[in-house]
Design a protein around this nucleic acid. Structure first.
Length: 265
DNA sequence: CCGTTAGCGTCCGTCCACCT
DNA sequence: AGGTGGACGGACGCTAACGG
């Protein structure tokens, strides 16, 4: 049996086929991505972002306690709200969160985070301003497809938002329904490609995250989500739980399986 | 000689131009 | 069609060079 031998991953089995509940639990505890977000503010001095009535500022206060539960609920509530302003707030906060740290969260903040967040409503320099109507419709369609179980169509709908590729469209889906939708970004793509070398059945999940939506991206994404959904169900059936930083026991969601793999491998 | 600052490399996802 | 390579954006942190 092969084991991961480099750095902090030392001692983990290389092939997740060989993982039992303790391996998943241990891996889940290695997930350290910082819970940064954007919150509404009245203090114009602290303003990081302004659009219409929406005045947002960076909030890093959840990082000290690693409170990702609050972050997940915060984004879910905003993205499912009936008000477009909340939806937009949710989208922007997810983009900020996803850009806050690089792939190695210990390396400190990524300077792009706020600029990229602003691109979502202001567009990149020299590029047309994104239409808020397009954005609103894409979010609505994405939610409908997700509710009705069409993960590929949901991904396609969200990738219709300018500056939202597969990486961030899947991040939005993840916050909309962490029990069924997971992230597929370049880092996850690397890990999936590595798993496909060990196990040929993973080949259909391998895809590059660049450029627009294609059917192969849609089916790779669906298959990847299904793996995470199924693994979470198996772990829950065994009575397994993972521990939040504050010690709270939580049942497995699809996203917890994805976060385990993101943290290791 | 030490405190400050200027300058430069780093980070990664998206999109465009150009391929097969 | 679908895939590849390169440019872009901009705060942050490190290092080099500067000034007192």
């Amino acid at each position: 049996m092969n084991y991961i031998t480099d750095g902090k991953d030392s001692g983990h089995k290389m092939n997740i086929q060989d993982w039992g509940a303790p391996d998943w639990e241990r891996a889940r505890n290695c997930y350290v991505y910082p819970p940064a977000r954007l919150i509404r503010t009245l203090d114009e001095g602290a303003t990081s972002f302004q659009h219409g009535n929406l005045t947002l500022t960076k909030d890093l206060s959840l990082i000290a306690t690693s409170d990702r539960h609050t972050l997940d609920e915060f984004h879910s509530k905003l993205l499912w709200s009936d008000g477009f302003e909340d939806n937009l707030h949710g989208l922007l906060s997810v983009v900020f969160w996803g850009n806050y740290a690089g792939s190695d969260p210990t390396k400190g903040p990524n300077g792009f985070a706020l600029a990229r967040t602003k691109w979502m409503v202001e567009g990149k320099a020299g590029k047309p301003k994104p239409s808020m109507n397009t954005l609103e419709a894409a979010l609505r369609d994405g939610r409908t497809h997700l509710k009705e179980g069409r993960l590929d169509h949901a991904l396609k709908a969200l990738m219709g938002i300018p500056n939202l590729g597969m990486s961030f469209a899947s991040k939005v889906l993840m916050f909309l329904d962490p029990s069924r939708a997971v992230i597929y970004d370049s880092k996850i793509a690397e890990k999936i490609a590595r798993l496909a070398q060990l196990d040929r059945t993973w080949g259909s999940r391998v895809v590059s995250v660049g450029l627009g939506y294609t059917k192969s991206k849609g089916s790779a994404y669906t298959s990847w989500c299904e793996f995470c959904i199924d693994t979470a169900a198996e772990l829950n059936a065994k009575g397994s739980t993972w521990l939040e930083t504050n010690g709270t026991k939580r049942p497995w969601r699809a996203v917890d399986v994805e976060r385990s793999i993101f943290a290791l491998l």
